[in-house]
């Protein structure tokens, strides 16, 4: 389904409730009433076209944004991605960690060490994800915001040009490392190799969270590759022509 501006946001959420954390990243919270997407975006001061671009990309893996949809401020995209990062690090990861800790506590004495291994493994994943996100937040995003400023003011500082030559967004696409592998491993450890606890009630919750996080991260990476990268490439191109 293609989500359009004159659809009611409530209907869209009924159709795909995985979009709840996504609308949260725009500052839109549940209890938003009966309005259409356009009305609610206006109330919340959100760029409607950009909102639609993101939720459609997120909702439909086959959706491929067209070139003319690239005319939104790079700043809003960076803000969106930043909020998503916060959601992963401050909500999702602690939630899963709490569940794995609980699993450890409720397991038989003789299995406790096994679950501690799983917990250590997850903490290692957390460190890797945090490092990856830090790199984006401190290196890639400031560069993106800087490029937009250059285009707005028309002045090209040497610093930016030098950076464009030494590091362009194409490199970012290459180094966009795969943070999914460890999640995949953890799922298999729980499904195949760790002992069962409490009729699997907690394990099921953990797996649900892991599948959910994995899907969210996948869509996040897709938004970066399909929206952020082309946007920045277009800005880099404009700046090269300017100078």
């Amino acid at each position: 389904m293609r989500i359009e501006k004159d659809m009611k946001l409530a209907d869209v959420i009924h159709h795909d409730f995985n979009l709840i954390p996504v609308i949260n990243r725009f500052g839109i919270q549940l209890g938003f009433g009966d309005g259409t997407i356009e009305q609610i975006c206006k109330e919340q001061n959100v760029n409607t076209a950009f909102f639609l671009l993101i939720i459609n990309t997120y909702h439909d893996p086959q959706y491929f944004p067209k070139k003319h949809l690239q005319s939104f401020p790079a700043g809003s995209l960076v803000a969106y991605l930043h909020n998503a990062h916060e959601y992963y690090l401050e909500q999702k990861i602690p939630e899963i960690k709490k569940l794995i800790t609980k699993l450890t506590e409720e397991s038989d004495e003789k299995h406790k060490d096994n679950f501690k291994l799983a917990l250590n493994f997850f903490e290692e994943y957390e460190r890797e994800l945090t490092a990856h996100i830090d790199r984006e937040e401190t290196s890639v995003y400031p560069y993106v915001v800087e490029l937009e400023k250059v285009i707005e003011t028309g002045a090209t500082p040497k610093k930016v040009l030098a950076r464009m030559q030494s590091y362009s967004i194409a490199d970012y696409e290459d180094e966009h490392e795969n943070v999914e592998e460890k999640l995949y491993d953890l799922k298999n450890l729980i499904i195949k190799y760790l002992p069962s606890v409490q009729k699997d009630v907690i394990s099921y919750k953990i797996l649900r969270e892991l599948f959910d996080l994995e899907r969210d991260l996948r869509e996040h990476a897709r938004i970066e590759d399909m929206i952020l990268v082309p946007k920045v490439e277009a800005m880099e191109f404009t700046i090269r022509k300017m100078s």
Partner: peptide, 17 residues
């Protein structure tokens, strides 16, 4: 065979087994 890709995942498997 194991469905585990990373070295640390393999380490957990090896310890468990």
């Amino acid at each position: 065979k194991l469905g585990i890709k990373t070295v640390s995942g393999l380490t957990v498997y090896a310890l468990l087994n």
